[in-house]
Simulated scan of single mutants.
Amino acid sequence: MHTTSRRTFLALTGLSALAVAGCGTASGSGVRNTRTLRYQGSAGAVSPAELAAALGHLEDLELKWVGNTISGPQDIQSAASGQTDFGGAFNGAVVKLAAGKAPIKAVVSYYGADKHAFNGFYVTEDSPIRSPRDLLGKKVGMNTLGAHHEAMLDIYLKNHGLSRAESGRVERIVVPPVNTEQSLRRGQIEVGVLGGILRDKALETGGLRKLFSDYDLRGAFSAGSYVFTKRFIEQNPETVGIFVTGVGKALDWSRTTPRDEVVAKLTEIVGKRGRNESAEPLKYWRSYGVSAPGGRIAAQELTVWNDWLSDRGDIKAGQVDVDQLYTNEFNAAATKGR
């Protein structure tokens, strides 16, 4: 759902420290236990938070839409600077923003990878590429550099014994997701990363073969989290508890309810909110990809990106204390542990 939203990962998170440094009141509305939460949405999509509201799991909380986000990093930066009350992004972006001293805390997972919701690395059916070593000197098209797809490629190569120097010989090319299939079929790239609707439509056409996917590499895992500022949490603990628990319940509902019923509900939500958008993409919805009960956050879902960013030199080792970056404290739908 948010594959394209990670496009500005490096640029925006690099600026995040400056944005936050100039904002001493990154606390949302400042009202103790506010009943209104400002947020950004996405055209033609329904987030777990929006689903939670429609299912009545947010009790008397009101979600106030202030516009659509251009990326996950921009979304959580808006929350950190007080322009919105919460935001969601790829966990690597959450780690990077925290490294820039943003006073944020991840409170619940909201998207991930499973057998239905995954990003695959595809080649043409007749491609000679069959193994990791075959990728040396080849072009791999992905939505952005320094984020989820490049991390998965690095992990794939490392897991199969390729050195850092050898990994560097695999050329990573930025290709807009809507152009990836065409670029792959035309031979402009040898490997293309496809997910969601774009993946399903490309596979319907035929002629492509999966080399590997993020789900193949790591199994089911949560990939992104909703965050609030620490100050907002301190001032509005009851509100945060209702929100986090409600999102967790909505995720559980989406996972245990027949797909047709979920798609019908999502389509109904888009139809009622009047944002001049198409509900057509929802026909391809299969899963939010969050398998953890109640959207519970596991430390590993943040440490894997913390380690990867450290290895790349994007952040310093020990710069981010992952244990302080997330909490399951407010999630009554996932009460075990932290």
Rank of each mutant, 00 (worst) to 15 (best):
T36R: 15
R286L: 13
V191C: 04
V175P: 02
A151W: 14
R32H: 15
G318W: 02
L203P: 04
S27C: 15
H116Q: 05
V107M: 03
L309S: 01
G187D: 08
E166C: 11
A89E: 04
T180V: 12
R275N: 06
A332F: 01
L10R: 12
V20F: 03
V304F: 13
R169A: 13
H149V: 00
A43N: 13
A117P: 05
G318I: 07
D60R: 08
K230I: 02
V263P: 08
E62I: 08
D321Y: 01
S310Q: 06
P73H: 09
Y226H: 05
S5H: 15
A332K: 15
L184H: 10
K96F: 06
G92M: 11
E277A: 03
D216E: 13
I189E: 14
K265T: 15
V263I: 14
I129M: 05
G289W: 04
G87I: 10
K316S: 10
A264N: 12
L51R: 00
I189A: 04
T239N: 09
L203F: 09
R259Y: 02
S222C: 10
E280S: 01
L55Q: 04
I269H: 01
V262Y: 06
E301P: 02
V140N: 08
E62T: 14
L325P: 06
K139H: 11
K210E: 14
L198T: 15
N143D: 12
I173R: 08
R38Y: 07
G168C: 03
S42W: 14
Q40A: 10
N328I: 02
E238W: 04
K158Q: 04
L12G: 09
L61W: 08
D75Y: 01
Q83E: 15
G248M: 10
I242R: 12
L153E: 08
R273G: 00
G294V: 10
I297F: 07
S127A: 01
H149T: 09
A292K: 02
R130V: 03
S222A: 13
G137C: 02
R172W: 10
D134I: 00
H2V: 11
T25Q: 14
V174Q: 11
D126L: 05
S287K: 11
I315N: 00
N33W: 15
P237R: 10
Y111T: 03
T4I: 11
G274D: 15
A93G: 09
G120E: 03
A98K: 01
P177M: 13
V304G: 00
A299S: 07
T245F: 07
E59M: 00
F118D: 07
N276A: 07
G30A: 08
A113L: 03
A54R: 07
E125C: 06
Y156F: 14
G82M: 02
A98C: 01
R275D: 02
T4F: 11
G141E: 08
T327Q: 04
S29Q: 11
R199D: 12
R35W: 02
E280Q: 13
A223Y: 12
V123A: 09
F221N: 05
A53S: 15
G196Y: 07
A49W: 06
K101P: 00
P73M: 13
L97A: 14
L309P: 01
S47P: 08
G195V: 07
T256W: 00
S29P: 09
G295Y: 05
T327D: 02
P128A: 01
Q77W: 05
V227C: 06
V290T: 01
D75R: 09
